[in-house]
């Protein structure tokens, strides 16, 4: 009876597909609740005293970005995030947190922290993103190549080499990694707007979440 066999297989396939979709939905909803419970709490670990921040201190909207200097999507999103900030002047503060998930990214984080001591964090980040294709190939990451580009950021390279060995820098990176784990950051960039995680990733989604928070607070 080929027809009834076909029906059996169709029903089985549909049931398995349905089970998959249901399980995915339930799992995602639970995960989202778990993340929100941490990120929207009063004492959420979204921002630390030491965290890099740009924008007015009294801005009512805080955009937190967990980023990896070696991540292509972070590189691609960086100008877009700046554009979003410029669209709401004085209303949004950007907080950057490190999520060095790629091999070699930890070196970049330490360099950024060391450059920060020279007041050159943003310049150094720009240089890193601009030269990322050269030092961050996933098949063969070569973080040492960054050194030849660092002078473009106007930093004292020798001082960076010395400062990045400071255990305080390592402590910052480990704290950010630990906070990222608690907040469910598994991919970069991961955004939070006033504690709300951007779970459906994309430019449009980020813009609408940010716009709605700005509209709600101002």
């Amino acid at each position: 009876m080929p027809v009834s066999r076909l029906q059996i297989v169709i029903v089985a396939a549909a049931s398995m597909a349905l089970a998959f979709v249901l399980a995915a939905y339930i799992y995602s909803a639970q995960r989202e609740d778990a993340i929100r419970a941490v990120s929207e709490a009063e004492d959420s670990p979204l921002e630390r005293e030491y965290s890099v921040s740009e924008g007015p201190a009294d801005a009512r909207v805080v955009l937190v970005e967990f980023f990896d200097p070696a991540c292509e999507t972070c590189r691609e999103f960086h100008p877009y995030v700046k554009k979003l900030l410029a669209a709401h002047p004085g209303k949004v503060r950007l907080v950057l947190r490190y999520a060095p998930l790629h091999q070699g990214s930890d070196t970049m984080v330490l360099i950024l922290e060391a450059a920060r001591r020279q007041g050159r964090f943003w310049e150094t980040l720009e240089v890193m993103y601009a030269t990322q294709p050269q030092w961050a190939s996933h098949h063969q990451p070569r973080p040492e190549l960054i050194w030849q580009f660092l002078p473009d950021a106007g930093v004292d390279v020798e001082r960076i080499r010395k400062d990045m060995r400071d255990p305080d820098m390592m402590a910052v990176m480990h704290q950010d990694l630990a906070d990222g784990r608690v907040l469910g950051v598994r991919r970069t960039p991961q955004f939070f707007v006033n504690g709300k995680p951007l779970l459906s990733f994309g430019r449009r989604q980020l813009k609408s979440l940010l716009d709605s928070e700005v509209a709600a607070r101002y």
């Binding site: 398995m16 089970a19 998959f20 399980a23 995915a24 799992y27 598994r186």
Partner: peptide, 11 residues
Amino acid sequence: LGSLFFSEIME
């Protein structure tokens, strides 16, 4: 489907 669930949904 289970293996895809582990990698794509549970990441």
